[in-house]
Amino acid sequence: MSVPTPPRSGWTPEELKRRRARSIAIGLALGFLVLMFYAVTIAKLGPQVLNRPL
């Protein structure tokens, strides 16, 4: 799939490349945040979370 051309004029190919790299970095950072929240939540719950009346 080709990368869609941005609507705004004045973006050089180099700027587009850098914008894409920044977007990927933001995406990775957000993904890492999700994983960190998940891991910390599990760690905070601890094994006792399974030991409860049903």
């Binding site: 609507p7 705004r8 004045g10 850098r18 914008r19 790299a21």
Partner: peptide
């Protein structure tokens, strides 16, 4: 296709494209 800014404020100059690399933010 046009951006929201272009549709509602056609006279507005497009924002300057950031030239920063990821490494610059780091």
């Amino acid at each position: 296709m046009s951006t929201i800014a272009q549709r509602f404020a056609p006279d507005l100059a497009p924002p300057r494209a950031s030239t920063a690399e990821v490494g610059d933010f780091f």
